[in-house]
Write a protein that binds this DNA or RNA. Sequence first.
DNA 1: TATATTATGTTAAATGTTTGACAAAATGGT
DNA 2: ACCATTTTGTCAAACATTTAACATAATATA
Lengths: 207, 207
Amino acid sequence: MEREISQAVIRRMPRYYRYLGELLESNVERISSNELSKLMHVTASQIRQDLNNFGGFGQQGYGYNVKFLHDEIGKILGLNQMHNVILIGAGNLGQAIANYVNFEKLSFRMIGLFDVNPDKIGNVFSGAEVRHMDELPEFLKDHHVDIAALTLPKDNAEAVAAELVNLGITAIWNFAHVDLEVPENVVVQNVHLSDSLMQLSYNITQI
Amino acid sequence: MEREISQAVIRRMPRYYRYLGELLESNVERISSNELSKLMHVTASQIRQDLNNFGGFGQQGYGYNVKFLHDEIGKILGLNQMHNVILIGAGNLGQAIANYVNFEKLSFRMIGLFDVNPDKIGNVFSGAEVRHMDELPEFLKDHHVDIAALTLPKDNAEAVAAELVNLGITAIWNFAHVDLEVPENVVVQNVHLSDSLMQLSYNITQI
DNA sequence: TATATTATGTTAAATGTTTGACAAAATGGT
DNA sequence: ACCATTTTGTCAAACATTTAACATAATATA
């Protein structure tokens, strides 16, 4: 019986991955949950509990091998394979995200940018030419796309998402300020910047 | 004795605010927790529980008045007052966020953009001229700043954050891919895009 | 005006998450 | 080779969050 791992745990994995990456760059060979806990300001117990969801990566009396653990978490997060990303919406945010995705070394690659605004079509950002949305079906015949990032105004987001799903896209990185209604085989990861800003605003007033 | 409200609740408030805003625009006058729960795909119990953290906004047999509740949540989130925002880092992402902040109607206003890159200084984005970081102390004498957004590479983020804190900034919206170490009177809200993308990547592999 | 219905606020139960404790295993020093 | 130390993996307790249940109060209907 497969036990599903909670999103609370998953949310923490990228952070472990980041710290381990930094340790790796500093040529640290091994680390104990206790040392790591001090570095990350979390409890050692949580680290061990989290990692154990995926199996025993450490060794008693030794701790964790940094490179090994880094690799394993990378695999867990699917970073051992390339993800082709397209972007819908070539505005300010789209350009920034295009840049960002390509900059992230290794496992994500921006391979296409789409928009409906004639002024944008043909421009080149981060090495990709902006194409018209109408070209998307044809594009998808020739290219395997793992993730579509939605960086467009919220008014069009729901319709575009529906279209993407129709065309077989199963993972959406959503920057539009709406909650997309998609079939359950489609994964949506929201980045709601307003929500984040409002949470900050709330916390300001609490000090 | 003030009971602190959990961040789990706070994270949901902006979403309520958004849905209520949409209802308001659709001229819906009242709504029950049950109707709202269907709209938002959460339990009615959670909605009532969440709202009750801040006081009784509804009425038995009637439900909640949309406009009133929207306003109250706005106040809770601090949206009834203007927040002046500056941005550190006028790259791609900085420009996008500058645009974004100004676009958010009402309570946030981008009043200054800073960078160290000579090529960027003097450019105008979203109505604000990019100034050199050296001008920041002087700028802060003349302007009240509520929030500093960090849209710069991670290597400089920690140092810049320290400088901001020194200059009296107490709220940071952090887009850099590091965890900032700040005094406890300073609020940091992280937007770690890589983490979000990795979480998506994980969830893709789980389907 | 009386009664059935609706729907909140709140209590308690159920569920989920985090932390503490410790046996067992490996390491490292002598 | 032995023993003290380190440190994991895991169990159980503590804590937090979510959901269900329901008494109470207001509304709506007849």
